[in-house]
């Protein structure tokens, strides 16, 4: 046995032994990371970095969260977390739902037809760069009710990502799929049903993912400005009353809703595009 092969043999044994040492499972690493974050938060409050001395500590926040989960009224308004949540989720659901219901058909038309692309798309291009929150004052004036004005802001926020992704999805369909269906005797409606819609589902799903995310941003901003209830409203209200534990609860709750909704949308998207995963 030469020196080189002996060294190699030694190295492989070392490697094998190292491989035998159990590594901490993933969830332990994740838990450690979260614990680290909480520790830094607590430390900042205790030491009083910048204005952190005024902010609640993790245990206080946890206590407040537990209380609200048990139905305790929030701030002075007397409404429960569930009442506020219901209204916020309703506004996001309605706004995003309306956006999907209008932006998907419009995006399909713009992506498919030159006429729509040329004459209708430019008007939307003009409105697209406006940040959704900038619509709040106009919405307050134009829509008589609080609900409608907030829903409008969510709608505008979710509309454009869905529209653009849908139109892009249709534009990028390969002509051969269209030709294949045409030469099998398919009508225009068959093309729409069997090619255009299924082929653009993946990009529609991406658009809805983005739209839901922007919908949450929009609802919080709109509620802070004009809501009388809602999780965004109560979070801002709690700040004005300097109830920082309620502010933190609001942040946690909104983050949870955002995460849950994007998880639900992505699950739905994966289900609808099962054929893609097999590639």
């Amino acid at each position: 046995m030469s020196a080189v092969t002996r060294v190699e043999a030694y190295l492989t044994t070392v490697q094998r032994q190292l491989g035998d040492v159990p590594r901490p499972p993933r969830y332990v690493l994740k838990a450690a990371s979260i614990a680290g974050f909480l520790a830094v938060w607590w430390l900042f409050v205790r030491v009083g970095v910048l204005g952190f001395a005024l902010i609640t500590t993790p245990p206080e926040a946890a206590g407040a969260l537990l209380g609200y989960l048990l139905g305790e009224p929030m701030t002075n308004g007397g409404y429960s977390l569930y009442y506020h949540s219901y209204h916020t989720i309703y506004r996001v659901g309605l706004g995003v739902g309306l956006a999907v219901a209008t932006a998907v058909p419009l995006g399909l038309l713009i992506g498919w037809s030159d006429w729509w692309e040329r004459y209708v798309a430019p008007a939307f291009e003009l409105l697209r760069p406006i940040p959704p929150v900038a619509w709040v004052p106009i919405a307050l004036v134009a829509f008589s009710t609080n609900l409608l004005s907030i829903v409008w802001v969510v709608f505008v926020g979710a509309f454009f990502p869905v529209l653009l992704n849908t139109a892009d999805g249709v534009r990028s369909i390969e002509t051969e799929y269209v030709r294949a269906v045409q030469s099998l005797g398919g009508s225009r409606w068959d093309l729409f049903r069997h090619v255009i819609i299924p082929a653009s589902v993946p990009s529609i799903a991406t658009g809805v993912m983005l739209g839901v995310g922007i919908g949450w941003i929009a609802v919080v901003a709109a509620e802070m400005i004009s809501g009388n209830f809602g999780v965004g409203y109560i979070t801002y209200q709690a700040y004005r009353l300097m109830q920082t534990e309620t502010v933190v609860v609001g942040i946690i709750v909104l983050g949870t809703y955002g995460a849950l909704s994007s998880y639900a949308v992505s699950r739905l998207g994966t289900r609808l595009t099962a054929w893609k995963d097999r590639e």
């Binding site: 390969e174 294949a180 045409q182 030469s183 005797g185 069997h194 090619v195 082929a199 589902v201 590639e279």
Partner: peptide, 20 residues
């Protein structure tokens, strides 16, 4: 006048519909 079912086409790269 345009494509028709009487003239079937087999394409160079495969054009089976991937979602079916």
């Amino acid at each position: 006048d345009g494509p028709s079912a009487e003239r079937g086409v087999v394409f160079q790269s495969n054009r089976l519909l991937p979602w079916m």
